[in-house]
Amino acid sequence: MRTLLELIRIIILFAIVGSAIGYFLIYIYLEMGIDTEKYGLIVFVAIFILFFVLYRNKLQFSGWYKGKGREKLPRKVSQILILSSIALLLLPPVLNLLLR
């Protein structure tokens, strides 16, 4: 039961946090004149990676699940994932400039 509650919690958190960040980024991209329909998937993947790192390093310890496998990501892995997510977020403006 705790696992199901934790899964529902993850889905709700991702829906709320992911949507808020996604709408904010799409608004910024629209203001910059970037076609968000072309690059929306890249933004979604970047947000998903950031949420994954946030969940594994912070949010999993405040939930209902108390089973095995609850440990933080290694520091290097967190840094690599965060940097790749930032690179993905910077990719649409660069691609928009290059592919005009």
Rank of each mutant, 00 (worst) to 15 (best):
N96L: 01
I28W: 07
I11S: 14
I10R: 13
L25C: 06
V94G: 11
L4G: 06
V94Y: 12
R9V: 02
G33S: 01
R9M: 03
R56K: 15
I21M: 06
L5H: 15
Y27N: 10
R100W: 14
L89Y: 05
I12R: 07
Q79P: 01
V77H: 08
F61G: 01
L5D: 07
E6M: 14
I8W: 07
I8F: 11
K72D: 07
S85Q: 03
N57A: 00
S85V: 00
L5Q: 13
Y65G: 00
L81G: 08
G18E: 03
Y55N: 10
F51R: 00
D35G: 06
L88Y: 08
P74G: 02
I28P: 06
I16W: 09
I86D: 13
L30M: 14
I12F: 14
I34P: 04
S62A: 15
Y23P: 05
I34Y: 07
R9N: 13
R2W: 11
I16E: 05
L13Y: 10
R75H: 14
V17R: 00
G69W: 03
S19F: 13
T3L: 15
K72T: 08
R100K: 15
L30Q: 10
Y23L: 15
L50K: 03
K76A: 15
G33T: 02
R9I: 00
L89D: 00
P74L: 02
M32A: 15
K68N: 08
E6N: 05
S84W: 10
L54G: 08
F24D: 09
Y27P: 03
N96E: 13
L83M: 08
L91M: 10
G22T: 06
G40M: 09
K68A: 11
S84H: 08
K58Q: 15
M32C: 06
F24A: 13
V43A: 09
K66F: 07
R100S: 13
R9Q: 11
V17F: 05
V77N: 07
I86F: 11
A20L: 08
Y39K: 01
L54Q: 03
Q60E: 10
I47E: 02
K72H: 12
